[in-house]
Design a protein around this nucleic acid. Structure first.
Length: 104
DNA sequence: CAAGGGGCTGTCA
DNA sequence: TTGACAGCCCCTT
């Protein structure tokens, strides 16, 4: 299993309505410091993947796409459909960040 | 082999 | 609270 797959597994575990930061995903995948690689990996997901990549956000409680890009809108709407509320272009990371162990 | 860049981050001003 | 900076890791030039 390569690092890319480890990342996929972690992302696949993020529960609906919750989000995780790139750095958090990296740590959970036992790859501390690979935050940036996580983003790179999400960018190169196989077409048609069912991975909830939209639940991965940056540590600022914001999305890492240009505010006017279609990708930003796409991710934002997907998160909102799961109950995450955006205020002024961002959301409360404190409130929605995934805490492994309290999922179910 | 070197350089640039990408859905990042923690630190410091 | 923002913005600038320096590290991080990997892939493509």
């Amino acid at each position: 299993m390569n690092n890319r797959e480890k990342i996929w597994q972690v992302v696949a575990q993020i529960p609906k309505g919750k989000v995780a930061t790139y750095g958090q995903v990296a740590r959970l995948a036992e790859l501390p410091g690979y935050a940036r690689y996580v983003g790179y990996t999400m960018k190169n997901l196989p077409a048609g993947t069912r991975l909830p990549w939209f639940r991965v956000v940056n540590s600022q409680g914001r999305l890492s796409f240009p505010h006017d890009s279609s990708q930003y809108q796409s991710q934002k709407s997907k998160l909102e459909s799961e109950g995450i509320v955006f205020i002024g272009g961002r959301f409360s990371l404190k409130k929605y960040q995934w805490q492994p162990g309290q999922e179910s």
